[in-house]
Structure formats: structure tokens, C-alpha cells
């Protein structure tokens, strides 16, 4: 087990290097720092001095790969590759293009993200599993049929409409909770309700349908037949036998996204004005602040890899057949 985890962590290194190389190429090779400067300064009629000054200010004046003017190890470290890309491995995200400390921003902003994402995930999971069990229990009945139709209809609606509709209905027509914004501490709850509810409702369609498929797949297995042959009742079979087996893919599917909850949801946060990492990223995209986008890409990759590792570990916990070595 330990050996497995160590090996997986070692395996993560080349992947992160790959991610790093990809972003480096994307941000510094496809477009040179000069291009970036010109764009920030407003494209046309920009003097070379202004470009130089902008680069100086944001630390893009160094050579890309090898600094011929430097000595010794600095030849490699005093470069954009090292300063802007490889530094990420030390979780040193540096400064954003607007001059703020990215690490500090992230540590501040992950909490609102979590406050929205965690309840959305957990309550959503409970709701979806409940509905899916209900449909599986009444399988091949009218309830099941129309339930699935409703699910398909619900998953055919863009998440944008869930958000807009939710804001319009709850916020504007019923005036129950504020449409957007956030507050610190316990007062945050009334700002949280709407995004969480909207997030859950938006996931019901695909979630319920997928879980129902998983349940039905299990229901057709041989061991379920043996359970029935014992004389167990249908709901006992469903809860004790089918649910436990179907939960394995469900739980491991959830575990893989757990670390990514830190990043939050881009859409929800920007619509509801939640000051989390999702809206942070969107703002960065809209302001074309590449330092932040780069940092978030790297952070996302790290979290994803952690998620994969957690998935494997969680398998060993819920499935007695799986052993890691």
C-alpha cells in the first residue's frame, strides 16, 4: 500500500512536468511576452519602450529558456521558464499581472468555494441516490418511465438556465434570498442557499439517470438472484445488496472530484457573486491575467492527481476485492 502510494506520487511528477510544459508552450511560445504586453497596452500604436516597461514591471523581460548573460546556474534559473513555470512546483505562484500575491488570494478565496461546493456535492449525492433508488425499485413501471423522461428533459436544459431561472424565480419574484453576493461567517448561509439549491437541481437529471443505470446493472447480477432465492424482500435486496455494490462506482466517482472542490464552480460563483476561486479564475480570464490562469491550471492538475490517488485508496476501503500493490 505504502509502496503503491509512493509509486503513484513518483508517477505524478512526469505528469505535472507535462502540464507545466504544455502551459509554458501555450503562454510563452505561441505568443511571446511582447505580444502579451502589446495586448495589455492596447494593441495599436504601442511603443517598444512601453512594451519593455510592461515586461519589466511584470517580470517577463528575461529570456525564455537560457539566459546567456547570466553566470553558472543562473543561466537556467534566471529565465522565464524557471521563474514563471518551474517555480510552480514549489507552490510558489508568484504575483498576478495586476500585482497581487496569488498564493494569498488562493488561500483566501478557497473557503467560499468550499462553502458552496461541498454542500452542493453532498446534498446532491443524497438526493440523486434517493431518486435513483426510487426509480430502480419501481423499475419498468410508469413511475420509472416518466422519471427517466423527466431526467432526460432536465439534463437537456443548459446549466445557465437553471441559474438564471433560479435567480429570477427565488430572488426576483419571491424575494426570498439575495440574488448574489457573499458574507463572512454565519451570515453567509442566506447567500449560500440559492447557489446550492440551483446546483443540486441542475445535477438531478444526469445524476439520477446515471445512478439508476448503475443500480439496474447490479440488479441483473447473479448474486441478486441468490439473495432473492434466500427469500429476502425486494427492498432488503435493494438496500443491503444492490446499494452496497452500486455505491462502489458512485463513491469512487465522487472521491475523484473531492480535491477539485477547492477550485469551485466557475459559472455558479460568477453568477452569484461568490468570492471564491471559480470567480477568481473567471475574472482572471476576462482580465487576461495569465499568471493566475497558469497558477490555476497547475493547481487543478495537482488536485486532479490527488483525486486519482484518493480514488484508488477509497477503492480498497469500500471493495474488499481490491488490494493495491
Amino acid at each position: 500500500m505504502t509502496a503503491y502510494i509512493v509509486r503513484r506520487m513518483l508517477y505524478a511528477l512526469p505528469i505535472l512536468l507535462g502540464v507545466n510544459a504544455l502551459t509554458f508552450v501555450l503562454f510563452f511560445v505561441v505568443n511571446s511576452p511582447d505580444d502579451m504586453a502589446r495586448m495589455h497596452l492596447g494593441n495599436k500604436r504601442v511603443t517598444a519602450e512601453a512594451v519593455q516597461a510592461w515586461k519589466q514591471e511584470h517580470g517577463y523581460e528575461k529570456p525564455l529558456l537560457i539566459n546567456h548573460s547570466a553566470q553558472g546556474a543562473d543561466m537556467l534559473t534566471d529565465t522565464i521558464l524557471y521563474e514563471k513555470s518551474l517555480r510552480l512546483f514549489l507552490f510558489d505562484f508568484g504575483q498576478s499581472d495586476s500585482g497581487r500575491d496569488i498564493s494569498h488570494d488562493i488561500s483566501q478565496r478557497m473557503w467560499p468555494s468550499l462553502a458552496i461546493a461541498v454542500p452542493t456535492l453532498l446534498v446532491g449525492l443524497a438526493v440523486n441516490i434517493t431518486f435513483a433508488l426510487l426509480l430502480a425499485f419501481f423499475r419498468a413501471s410508469y413511475l420509472d418511465f416518466w422519471g427517466v423522461v423527466l431526467c432526460v428533459a432536465m439534463m437537456s436544459i443548459s446549466s445557465l438556465f437553471y441559474i438564471i431561472g433560479g435567480q429570477f424565480l427565488v430572488g426576483k419574484l419571491l424575494n426570498l434570498v439575495p440574488i448574489s453576493g457573499y458574507d463572512t461567517g454565519l451570515h453567509a448561509w442566506k447567500f449560500m442557499v440559492l447557489p446550492v439549491v440551483v446546483g443540486i437541481v441542475g445535477s438531478i437529471g444526469s445524476g439520477t439517470r446515471w445512478y439508476r443505470t448503475l443500480f439496474l446493472e447490479e440488479i441483473h447480477r447473479d448474486y441478486v438472484r441468490s439473495a432473492r432465492a434466500k427469500g429476502l424482500s425486494e427492498h432488503w435486496v435493494l438496500f443491503r445488496h444492490v446499494l452496497r455494490n452500486a455505491l462502489i462506482p458512485i463513491l469512487t466517482g465522487v472521491v475523484v472530484v473531492l480535491p477539485l472542490l477547492f477550485i469551485g464552480s466557475l459559472l455558479t460563483e460568477s453568477f452569484f457573486g461568490i468570492p471564491g476561486l471559480g470567480s477568481y479564475t473567471i475574472d482572471a480570464i476576462n482580465r487576461q491575467d495569465f499568471a493566475i490562469v497558469r497558477a490555476m491550471v497547475f493547481l487543478g492538475a495537482v488536485l486532479y492527481i490527488i483525486g486519482l490517488l484518493l480514488t484508488d485508496i477509497s477503492y480498497t476501503m469500500v471493495d474488499p476485492r481490491v488490494r493495491l500493490d
Binding site: D222, S233, D319
Partner: peptide, 24 residues
């Protein structure tokens, strides 16, 4: 019928490999 199944009538199947619940 449920009380007959596994009560007065027991049944075993061809595939012992898949006929038992793997996580119990």
C-alpha cells in the same frame, strides 16, 4: 412466496463465482 423461498425450498446455482455478493 418469500417465506417459501429459502424456507421450504432452497436453491443453488451453476455459477458459484458470481452467485455470492462480493462485498459482504
Amino acid at each position: 412466496m418469500r417465506s417459501e423461498r429459502g424456507g421450504r425450498i432452497g436453491m443453488i446455482f451453476q455459477e458459484p463465482m458470481t452467485s455470492l455478493n462480493p462485498v459482504m
